[in-house]
Simulated assay, not measured.
Amino acid sequence: MELRQLRYFVAVAEELNFGRAAARLHIASPSLSQQIKSLERDLGVRLFERDRRTVALTAYGETLLPRTRALLEQADDLRRTARGFAVSEPVRLGYVSWRPADLEERVSGVARLLVDAWVMPSHTQAARVADGSIDLAICWVRATDLAEQQLAGRLVGVDQLYAVSVGYESSVRAQDTVVLVDADTATWSSWNIYALEFARSTGASVERIDDHGITGPAFFDHVRRLGRPVLSSPKRDATPWPSGITRRPVVDPVPMWTWSLVSRWDEASPAVLAAVEALTRDVVVDFGAAPYWLPGDDPFRPGALTYQP
């Protein structure tokens, strides 16, 4: 029996769905199922009743769940105490628009994470790590940026970008899309760099704007005005989708946007290093079989999941 298997048991018990639990744990569903079966063999009891449609705790599972949670909390507390994290300064993390949904859960037991409330552009967050304002940042960076600012980056997530248009829902070739480039480089520097290189590489059209319409209501206004599929940025936005506006897959190639967990290359804090390891250790990204596109200076092109100058 391993603590890892006990964490798997708790995740499945909370989700009551192997697929969701596997996604939460960042492992494959078949592997999770095998680990649960192995745990059941070690314990000598059946923890779950499962069929093709449902998963339910058995009476044994119901009884063991609170004790398992308590045991895991004791293990986490022991780890915090042993490593001195209980009295250490918190690890300060900034982000742009995306962060893992289970961010705090991943670092539980190894560091006290303080998520910075200031949501800033990628280049700004990377610079804040370099000057020591924060310890870590989840942002988009190029290999050149990492080298120039003496930063290390590890892959923590990937977005597959899509196009937005009026009416159609079918896939669209990259060369038939439009990319928006905003005049405000203080806010949209990273996106502008990505968009312009994407256009040069694929033949997509460039539309220059000055109203921050990369996201928000102005973005949908541009989609209507242009009458062509417009590539959407990875910037999360709560604006409701207007009626008649659709999302379309982009193909030949598929545009991918990588998210890096950035730290200082000479970082010596055990808490920061432990947080980096916890947040990236089990990250598995499948770019798929279809041709995809990454910028030429992306630090995570095929075969490279970490970068350090």
Rank of each mutant, 00 (worst) to 15 (best):
10 V>Q: 10
127 A>N: 08
133 S>V: 00
18 F>L: 00
268 A>T: 15
157 G>N: 13
34 Q>M: 14
23 A>G: 11
179 V>D: 05
132 G>S: 13
66 P>K: 03
107 V>N: 07
155 L>V: 05
6 L>F: 08
115 V>R: 13
233 S>I: 06
155 L>N: 11
159 D>I: 01
289 A>W: 13
164 V>D: 03
280 T>S: 14
159 D>P: 01
252 D>M: 03
5 Q>D: 13
53 R>I: 09
167 G>C: 04
172 V>Y: 11
226 L>T: 13
64 L>C: 03
25 L>N: 14
77 D>K: 14
68 T>S: 07
222 H>P: 01
152 A>W: 00
13 A>Q: 04
4 R>S: 02
30 P>A: 13
205 S>W: 10
35 Q>T: 01
294 L>V: 09
106 R>I: 14
307 Y>Q: 04
124 T>I: 08
271 A>Y: 04
302 P>K: 01
166 V>K: 05
126 A>K: 00
80 R>A: 03
240 P>H: 12
235 K>L: 14
195 A>Q: 04
87 V>P: 02
126 A>Y: 00
77 D>L: 14
210 D>I: 02
162 Y>N: 07
162 Y>D: 08
103 L>C: 12
175 Q>P: 01
86 A>W: 02
66 P>M: 04
43 L>H: 10
178 V>S: 03
68 T>P: 09
86 A>R: 15
137 A>C: 09
174 A>H: 14
62 E>H: 04
233 S>A: 12
304 A>R: 09
126 A>Q: 00
5 Q>T: 02
184 D>E: 06
205 S>L: 02
108 S>R: 15
96 V>I: 02
261 L>D: 06
